[in-house]
Design a protein around this nucleic acid. Structure first.
Lengths: 240, 240
DNA sequence: AATATATTTTATGTCGACAAGAAAAATTTA
DNA sequence: TAAATTTTTCTTGTCGACATAAAATATATT
């Protein structure tokens, strides 16, 4: 069964006002899926959620449809909705798209950024730096996502931003899932690359932004791959 | 108000079986939006649709949520849902993303295509050729979308395919909307480019596929732009 | 008459209940 | 005992109704 996360606090709060019901459920479930509190592949019971959030199944259902559109859950018709599995056969496609979106969004950011946007990006970079100092890997993974998301927003192409955020979220789940023995060297490398990236964006140096983004993407892809290679969980996929 | 399309036939048909209700509404509305039977910006009334499709508002609502996720409608909280407007301030972003997706999907198709997939693509190309011969512009616009969609599928990267299909649909609306006096020269150019494209894909020539796709994208972008430039409707956007 | 306020109306957001598939359990049959 | 079949249980898909926020209309006020 799915992890219950029954210690959450939405049971105590007052019923959300008209229109907030769906977004409450949506945000809570999104977070729990991304943080793997809900295991990939585990079934989601509408009735259970309805009790947990103290609202009827209608808003629950609408939230699940939106999650399905973000690729975070999969709806099996007339059967259960499940948390989207981490399909590692699709990893090559994922790497390819992620790398391209890293490059494109960072390029565009170097072209179109405003000073305010650079400030936001710098602030997130500082938060990332703190997380590295604290050796808080989960926080690093989370802040990393918002850092790159902010860069994409500065690029101002919503088609890229939306796809990129979806890919970043998928990457967040992968990193969390496969992360076990963390290698302390890589975070430092990320930190330097982030720094270079911000400088290129601020300077409006499109070529440099592209190049660094490409390197950065390769770095992350390698990291995910290295996690996967020496992760025993893969054996679970092999029928004996 | 919205175009009613009241001569459609779903009123006569029997009630769709369990689970088909949503997809019926979804497909019908998608087609009507893409074919501009529903004008961009026009409000969508759930109750009206509920009567028209002879089903309760619940499945109607679910269909609208899915359309919103495809960018075909926009939901204004606590107020109406409207058919997504054609925002021409976002056209540069659209051109950029469309061009990139043309290139990437065609490249991947040249890498990953199977013989069966080439056959499907060729068949669609033949249909396009027929539409050109018949000077049936609307059919050309429609078949063109499925032609490129088939190429993307042969590339086998669902992240690209999904974004590309969304962009192609947006392009379909733009072409329909701005199309007025059609220039008969361009369709022939498309036909030749399509032919070259299929050859490059079949031959597995990635470089050629990329180059031709880029040219083709530029061609289409120019076509949309030329429509817009000499379309008086633009004046409607200027406050006098 | 024009603006501001109160009232009515309309359409959305939510609800609880029923209907219909699918899975699980119980029963039958070989 | 094991497979096949029926019955039960459970969950989803759909429904009609109510609650509520926003728009439209009517009324009051300056």
């Amino acid at each position: 069964m799915a992890a219950k996360a029954k210690d959450e606090t939405e049971t105590g709060g007052a019923k959300p006002k008209r229109g907030l019901g769906v977004s409450t459920v949506l945000e809570t479930l999104r977070r729990e899926i991304l943080e793997l509190k809900l295991a990939p592949g585990s079934p989601i019971d509408e009735t259970e959620l309805s009790q947990r959030f103290k609202m009827s199944r209608t808003p629950i259902r609408e939230a699940l449809i939106k999650l399905a559109n973000d690729g975070l859950v999969v709806t099996l018709p007339n059967r259960a909705t499940i948390v989207a599995p981490l399909d590692f056969l699709e990893l090559p496609s994922f790497y390819d798209a992620l790398t391209l979106m890293y490059r494109v969004t960072t390029r565009l950011a170097a072209q179109n950024r405003t000073q305010d946007e650079v400030a936001v990006i710098r602030d997130l970079q500082a938060q990332y730096s703190d997380a590295v100092a604290d050796k808080d890997v989960y926080r690093m993974i989370e802040v990393n996502r918002y850092f790159h998301s902010a860069i994409a927003k500065a690029g101002k192409n919503r088609y890229y931003t939306e796809l990129f955020e979806r890919l970043l979220d998928e990457g967040r789940r992968l990193l969390r899932f496969y992360y076990s023995s963390f290698n302390d060297e890589l975070p430092a490398a990320y930190l330097d690359e982030h720094e270079e990236m911000v400088r290129a964006i601020e300077a409006g140096d499109v070529g440099a932004a592209d190049r660094i983004a490409g390197q950065h993407a390769d770095q992350i892809v390698r990291q995910i791959q290295s996690y996967i290679v020496d992760d025993r969980r893969l054996n679970a996929e092999i029928s004996l």
